[in-house]
Amino acid sequence: MSDAAAPRTNFLIVFTIWGAGLGAAAQFAKISVIFAPMARDYGGAAATSWLVSVVGIVGLIFGTTAGLLVVRLGPRRVLVGGLMLGAALSAFQAGMPGYGWMLASRVAEGASQLAIVVAGPVLIAEVTAPRHNGFAMSLWASFFGVSFAASALIAPVLVAAFGIAGLFAAHAAYMAVFAALLWPMLPADHSADRPAAAPWPRPREGLLAQHLAIYRSPFVAAPAAGFVFYTLMFVALVTLMPLQMPPALHGWVSEGMPLIAIAVSLTLGVQILRWLSAVRLVQLGFALAAVAALSLWLVWGEGAAMTVALLALAGSLGLVQGGSFAAIAELNRTSEDRARAAGAIAQLGNLGTATGTPLLTALIAGQAATGVLVFSVPLCLGGLAAHQWMAWRRTRGH
C-alpha cells in the first residue's frame, strides 16, 4: 500500500468504489425496505429483525479486526474479496433457503459488508489528491443514505416483478459487476514496512494489543471517537422523529433528514474544508446540531417549525458525517493507519447504530420533547469534547 499522496485524483476509481459502497449498504437495505414480505416468509417481525441487525453486529465485534486484516492483506484484495463474497451470498439467498441458513448467510454477509466499508475509504484516499480529499471522503460518507434511498425506490419494483428472490439475484449481479470492474482498476497491493515512528505491535504480541494500540492513538482513534456520537444520534432521530410529527409532515421528515444531511455534506461541508480542518468541521457540525436540538425543544408541537428544526439538525450532522471520514486521511498519513482508523469507525459506528434508537425510545416515552433534548445535546457536546481531547493529546505527543 503506497503512502505517497496521489498527484491527481482518479475520479473514475473514486466513483466506482463509491458504487461498491452502495452495494455494501444495500446488504442492510435489501431486507429493511421489504421488511413486511420478508416477515411473511421468514417467521414474523421478530425473526426478520435479526436478519437485519446481525449484519451490524458483525461490524460491532470485528470492526477493528477488519482494519488489521486490510493492513495484512491489502485493501484491493479485501475490497474485491468482500464484493465477491457478497455476490455469492446474495446468489445463495436468491434460492430462499430456510431461516437458519438465511441467518447464517447474513452473518457471513456482515463480514462481506465490513470488508468493503473498511477497505473503501483507504483506497479512495490512495487515489485522491490532497485538494480533493474533502469531496472524495464526503462522497464516500454518503453511501449509506444514498443506497437506502435508491433501494426504497428500486426494491419494491423488483419484488413486484420477480419476487424477493429476484431482488437478491439483482443484488448478487450488482456486487459481481463491481468486483469485476474494480480488480483491474485498483492499484496493486504492496507490502510496506512500518515506519519507526509508529511502533505498532507485532502479530505475536496478540490481537488485543493491536486493538489497544488503535484506540490509544489520538490520530488513528480520533475519527471514530467523534463518529460514534454521530451514529448514536442520527439513526435514532431519523427512525423515531417522524413518529412525533403530524401525518402530513411524516414524509418531509423521514425522507428529508437523510437527504439534507447528504446534500449539506457534499456542498457546504466540502466548501468549509477549504478553510477548516476536518476535525474543526466535525466540531462545528456538533455545535450547530446542539443549537438545532435546542430549537427543536423550543418549538415542540408546532409541526412546520419542528420540521425546519429537524432538517437543520440533520444538515448540521451532515457536516459531522463528511468531516469524520475526511479526518481519516487528514490525521493519518500511511495507508496502514488509515485502515486501522476505518476499522475503528466501522466498529464504533455500529455500536452507536445499535444503541441509540433504544435509548431515545425510552427517553421520548418518559419525557417527550425534553427527552429528545436530553438525548441530543449531551451527545453533541460529547462529540465536540472527544475531538478536543484527542487534539490536545496530539499536541502533547501522546
Rank of each mutant, 00 (worst) to 15 (best):
P187Y: 00
H171W: 14
V127P: 05
A198I: 14
A66G: 12
W300R: 09
F35Y: 12
W275G: 13
F375V: 08
P187W: 02
A236E: 06
A292F: 01
A305M: 10
L311Y: 03
A45R: 05
P121C: 09
L311Q: 11
V54N: 00
Q244W: 03
I154Q: 02
A198M: 14
L268I: 15
F135P: 00
T267A: 12
V107I: 15
G43N: 08
S376H: 03
G303C: 09
Q271T: 11
V253S: 07
P37A: 10
V127M: 01
A46S: 12
V80M: 11
V377P: 10
A339W: 05
E126A: 15
S147Q: 06
S49I: 03
S2P: 07
F234S: 04
A160D: 13
A293I: 06
L212Q: 12
A391R: 15
V58L: 07
M38Q: 06
A329L: 03
A287I: 09
L51N: 04
L240K: 07
I164M: 09
L294S: 12
L348P: 08
F62I: 02
T355I: 14
A386C: 10
L373V: 07
A368K: 11
P187A: 09
A287H: 03
A149P: 01
L319H: 05
G323L: 13
L319E: 05
I17D: 05
M233R: 03
S191E: 15
T231D: 06
K30P: 01
V270M: 06
G63W: 00
A24V: 08
L182C: 07
A47S: 15
A155C: 08
S49M: 02
R333V: 12
L313W: 11
F144K: 01
S335L: 02
Q244N: 07
A342M: 08
F229N: 04
L294R: 01
M84I: 15
W50M: 06
V320Y: 03
R280E: 14
G63E: 10
V70S: 10
R216G: 15
A222F: 01
F234C: 06
M245S: 08
A161H: 14
Q27H: 11
P218V: 08
D41N: 09
G226W: 04
G67T: 09
A225D: 10
R274A: 12
F148K: 01
V264M: 05
A104D: 09
L69M: 06
A47W: 04
Q283V: 11
A20K: 06
A365G: 14
G59M: 07
L186F: 06
I116F: 07
L259P: 04
R338W: 07
A354P: 00
R40F: 02
L249Q: 14
Q244S: 14
C380L: 03
A344I: 03
W389C: 05
W140D: 03
G371K: 05
A305D: 02
L73C: 11
G100V: 09
V157D: 02
M257N: 05
A180C: 14
L310S: 07
A344Y: 01
A369S: 13
K30Y: 03
W50I: 08
A20E: 07
L266I: 13
Y230N: 10
P258T: 10
V253E: 06
